[in-house]
Amino acid sequence: MQIAFHTDSGIKRQENQDYVGAFTNQVNRVMVMVADGVTSTEGGDVASAMAVEHFGHAWEQTTCNSMLAISTWLKETAVYVNDVILAASQRYEDLNRMATTLVLAVIFDDQIIIGNLGDSKAFLLHKNRLKQISFDHNLRNELLRAGTITKKAAEELPNGDSVTRFLGVDDQTNIEIDQHPFLQKDMLFLTSDGITKVLSNANIKRIMQEKISLDLRAKKLIASANQQGAPDNVTALLVSRDDEKDTN
């Protein structure tokens, strides 16, 4: 398995509110994460860093090695991390509304667990098909999933992209957890929404499949998004099931 990740403020932002990391627990189970500070509030950079670092360091202390145990741990830790962010926001007036999205993956031999709050995204490249495997928690999608709005109405919904789940602001922590196959030749892509605002799935897939190192592919995803005028911070985290390293 290979892991590569990079983050950048982007060409239109001076501050980078994204944060990214990879952590290994006591039984060598790997967790990777991307967080994106909510830009409508102050302290998004603080919230995203706190989310990844607290989740990651807590993970390093565990011996969780089953899907059920890890799912339970994720739910409990999301509540804990949310409480930590809330406590910090209450101590500092300029951070009193800070919040962040979070998408994470725990890697098994042939499976992955995906957890997310908000609209940072997880994609799986399998047999030449790139598919988003996380759910974007925004007002439009939540109403569609609940069946309370039609697709046509959803397209015209004011503030439809408003994030509905995150860490911070209040004590309503509802991390969504799912499980997916992760097979030989598959590749996982975690990202904030900066890249997907400007690069199509076809372009993302083309870069992910290039015969260059995984590290260079992550860098190229960011560079390509910036070349297309990415309006937000840009982050790319790639996990390849293969150990073979392309260096061409």
Rank of each mutant, 00 (worst) to 15 (best):
D8L: 01
A88L: 12
L238A: 07
S134H: 05
D8S: 05
N128G: 03
R140N: 03
L183H: 09
V103A: 11
Q90C: 14
T72F: 08
L117E: 09
L144K: 04
Q2M: 11
H54W: 11
H54P: 04
A154H: 03
R217V: 01
A51E: 07
R145A: 14
I107D: 04
G118T: 12
S48P: 05
I177T: 05
A218C: 07
T63Y: 02
F5T: 04
I212K: 11
G147H: 07
T100C: 05
R145D: 13
D178Y: 03
R206S: 11
Q2F: 01
N174C: 12
V81C: 06
V32G: 02
Q26C: 09
V20Y: 02
T39N: 11
V84F: 01
R91M: 12
T173D: 03
D242H: 10
E176P: 07
L144A: 08
M67I: 15
A47M: 02
Q17A: 09
I195P: 00
L216Q: 14
A69Q: 10
N174D: 15
D170H: 04
R97G: 11
L237A: 08
Y80A: 14
V32E: 07
K75V: 09
N203G: 06
L139N: 09
F5L: 11
A99N: 10
A58V: 05
A35G: 05
M67D: 12
M208I: 08
E156Q: 14
I133A: 01
R91H: 10
V198P: 00
E176V: 13
E42H: 10
I133L: 03
A236E: 08
M67V: 13
E42M: 10
N203M: 12
V163C: 08
L183D: 11
T247R: 11
F123I: 05
K219E: 14
R13K: 15
N159L: 14
M67H: 12
R145I: 04
D136G: 01
Q227G: 08
E60H: 02
L104N: 08
D186V: 06
A78K: 04
G115A: 13
K151A: 13
A223V: 13
A230K: 01
T24P: 06
E210K: 09
D232L: 06
E155G: 13
I3S: 03
F108W: 09
V30N: 10
I177R: 01
N226G: 06
T72G: 13
S224A: 15
H54S: 15
T77M: 13
Q2L: 12
Q61P: 00
D193Y: 06
M67Y: 08
E156L: 15
Y19N: 14
V46N: 01
T164H: 04
L95N: 08
A88N: 12
K205L: 06
G10T: 07
R129K: 15
P181H: 07
A4D: 05
